[in-house]
Simulated assay, not measured.
Amino acid sequence: MKISAVIPAYNSAKFIKAAAASIEAQTEPVAEIIIVDDGSTDATEAVVRSLPGNIVYYKQANQGPSAARNKGIELASGDWIAFLDADDQWTENKIALQKTILEKYPELVLVAGDMAEIDNDDDIITQSVLAKHGMLEDFRKLAGQAIPNALARLVTKNFIPTGTVLAKRDILIAAGGFNSAIRFGEDLELWAKIATHHPISCLPLCLMLRRQHGNNATSANESMLLDLTKVMESVRAFSQQQLKRQGLDPNQLVSDAFWTLGYWYFVNNQANLARKAFISSLKQQLTSRSVAYLIASTLPPFLVAQLRKFKQIIG
C-alpha cells in the first residue's frame, strides 16, 4: 500500500509549512507529498521549495481547488490518495488509524473521519464536527465498518471532510475526479459517486484540524446554493435507483435544493429570483411549502413584512 498525499495550494505561504509538517509527523509515513500550486502570487513556491521530505511541487495557472486536486491525483505514484488543504493539519496518527481499518475491512475503498476546528492561533474551536452535527454516536457504533445506506446519508448531510479522506486512486479516477465546474459541493458529488457503487467508512476519531478563518468560512450564499442544485441534479442522474433503494426520493432531493435557494432569495428580498427557484422546485415535486412561498414571493414587500411579524407573534 503506497500512499500519496495531495495538497492544493493558493496563496498559502502562511500555513503550507504547518500542513506539510503534519504529514511528515505521521506515525505511519506516506510515500510522497504532492503540492499543486494553483497560480499563487505570494511566497507559496519559495516556502514549499524550502520544505524537507519527499515533496513533488507542480505549479499551474489558477483553475480552482478541484482542478488542483485532480492534477495531484494524476501526478501521484501511490495507489491510495490522501487529501489535505494547505491551511489545515492532520493529527499525527491519522494515516495509521486508517490503515488499521483497511486491514480489518479490506473491502473499503474510502475511509474518512471526524475533524476538529481551530482558529488562526491553532486554538481548538470545535472538538468534534461529527458531534456538532449529532452524528458521532452513529459512527462510534459502526467502529469503522462500511456505512449502511451511505449514499442516502451523504446527500442528507455530507459527513466527509475532504482533508480526512484516504481513497483508492483508481476509484477516484474511475469516478471522474472532482468536478471543476462546481465550486461548492464538488466533494459531495465525488463521494456520492463512489458511495453509489462501493463501500465507504467514516471513523469516529479526529483525523484533521480544520482552520476556520475568513478565507474558508462557508456560509449560505447564492453561489453555494446554486451549486447545490447542480450537485443534487447530478446525484439524481447517476444514482436514481440506488437512492430509491435506500429510501430517498431523487426528485425530492432536487426539489429541496431549489426550495432552499428560493428561500435564500426570498429572505434577501430578491422576489423575482425567488419565484424562479420556487417554480423550479415545484417542477420537481409538488409541495405545499413551495406553493406557499411561491405565492408569498408575489406579494408586495410591505405585506410580506407584516406576515413575518405575525408569524413571529404566533410563534
Rank of each mutant, 00 (worst) to 15 (best):
V291R: 11
D37A: 09
L253N: 00
P199A: 12
Y58F: 13
G113H: 00
S288R: 12
G78P: 05
P148V: 09
I81F: 03
A112F: 07
N11I: 01
S239V: 04
I171S: 09
R245Y: 06
Y57F: 15
L203A: 03
D227N: 14
D88V: 06
M115R: 12
E189S: 04
A277H: 10
L286A: 14
E74D: 15
T229R: 00
V109R: 01
I124Y: 07
T287C: 09
T44V: 14
D138K: 11
N269C: 08
I73S: 00
P204R: 01
N268T: 14
R210Y: 04
P199N: 04
N62M: 13
S280P: 11
A175D: 02
I124V: 15
E222Q: 14
Y263F: 13
K132I: 03
A195S: 12
G262M: 03
M232R: 03
A274I: 02
E32R: 06
V129P: 09
R140A: 08
Y263V: 01
K14Y: 11
R169D: 08
L225P: 00
S223K: 11
S255F: 08
A31W: 00
S281D: 06
A277W: 00
K283I: 04
V30R: 00
S40L: 08
D38W: 01
F83Y: 14
A167I: 10
I314M: 13
I55C: 09
S180Y: 07
D85I: 04
H213N: 12
A76P: 02
A143M: 02
E32F: 06
L286Q: 14
M224V: 01
S297N: 03
A143Q: 14
A150G: 00
L110R: 01
R211C: 03
L172M: 10
A296C: 07
D256W: 03
D187N: 07
Q63S: 11
E24F: 11
A9Y: 05
V109H: 03
P300C: 12
A43V: 03
N179W: 02
S77A: 14
E28M: 09
F184S: 13
K59Y: 08
S255K: 11
S12M: 00
E222F: 10
Q26K: 07
L151S: 06
E24S: 12
N158I: 03
N216G: 14
P199S: 08
Q145A: 15
L286Y: 06
K59A: 10
A21R: 12
D37Y: 06
W259T: 05
L188H: 05
Q241I: 09
I7Y: 04
G177N: 10
L303Q: 09
A192V: 09
Y263P: 05
D121H: 10
A46L: 05
A292N: 06
N158T: 02
L205C: 05
Y10E: 06
L154M: 15
E103Y: 05
A175L: 02
G315K: 15
I194F: 04
F238A: 13
K14G: 01
A31G: 12
S12E: 15
V231C: 10
I7R: 03
L303S: 07
A76V: 03
T287I: 12
P161M: 05
D88E: 13
I314T: 15
V111C: 01
F258D: 04
A131H: 13
R140C: 09
A96M: 13
